[in-house]
Nucleic acid binder design. Structure first.
Lengths: 178, 178
DNA sequence: GTCTATACGAAGATAGAC
DNA sequence: GTCTATCTTCGTATAGAC
């Protein structure tokens, strides 16, 4: 059933955000999702296929959100809108954010296809607005710096200072970058 | 022997940087280090103790390097020196950088004591220079943004654009932050 | 101090009942 | 489509020889 898949996906995301994929067993996921282990394999085939799905869905959702946020905007306004949207997305999907940060720079993993899209698509969205706002700068490195400042500050917020407001965090990031 | 410990530590670091701690077995580490599995346990006691050691040593070395870099400097010069030193450190110890990024925001892990120091000590060093350079800003969030921009750009450099020069990367980061 | 051999549990995956 | 039971492999850790 579709509901079963949803339960499995959200239970898996919650667990791996805190412990990583390898440290999370299908037993743990099935128990947290309230289903039997066999159902996980019936619905996803294998552990790595499960995480391919989870990561691919998460990247697609993030990329779409980032692009929508800067739609119709140009220059610095587009950059600021995208930074803000990234913070909102991290707040609303903190588990995916943690998983993504933990996995982006690893090579030689089973679900690497999906992982690569974190960088190519999501940071790629930043590249587009950066190229338009600051054509004289090194686009890829600047996009990485912007993305990095936003993501790390967002996670600092959620993990260590959850009582801060979105506005505080956004202002701190925007004040740091120019 | 001390050399055995060194071999184990460096083999372990290289493996976990790419696969994560849980996905790396003591068998793999022993084989890569050229020693027997028993020697790993004799020298470190357990897998988690091995990584406690590796992480604690890495955090201490990073924190010392960051503090030394800004020593005697004030204001923006101190910030720039620390950013540059962090990039140098990432270039020279890329495996530790990958491990650190993958683990910082996880909670409830066995080696959490050592991990917490990544944030408290290393980002703490940034906090000090930020507080001095921009007293009007939110110190902790700004330090996180600065640290995040530098680390993520540094890893983008090493993992995806290894042919770029340190100067290019440093200039891109410094141009992005103000 | 380092090795080999082994105990023991954990985890991915499958088979078959319902 | 979901469950329980089971197979098999892998991985941490220990014991004991060298």
């Amino acid at each position: 059933m579709a509901a079963t898949r949803e339960h499995i996906v959200s239970a898996a995301l919650a667990l791996v955000a805190d412990r990583g994929i390898a440290a999370t067993s299908i037993d743990d996921i099935a128990a947290a999702a309230g289903v039997a282990k066999g159902s996980v394999f019936y619905n996803f085939g294998s552990k790595s296929a499960l995480f391919e799905t989870i990561i691919a869905e998460g990247v697609a959702r993030l990329t779409a959100a980032l692009q929508a946020a800067s739609d119709g905007l140009t220059g610095r306004a587009a950059v600021e809108a995208m930074v803000t949207q990234l913070l909102v997305h991290i707040r609303d999907h903190p588990d995916f954010a943690k998983l993504a940060v933990a996995e982006v720079f690893r090579t030689g993993r089973q679900w690497q296809e999906s992982i690569r899209n974190i960088r190519e698509d999501s940071i790629g969205a930043f590249r587009t607005v950066v190229a338009q706002a600051w054509p004289e700068r090194d686009t890829t490195l600047t996009a990485a710096a912007l993305f990095g400042a936003t993501v790390i500050t967002g996670l600092e917020w959620l993990v260590f200072q959850p009582d801060r407001s979105l506005e505080d965090v956004r202002d701190a990031v925007l004040a740091t970058i120019r």
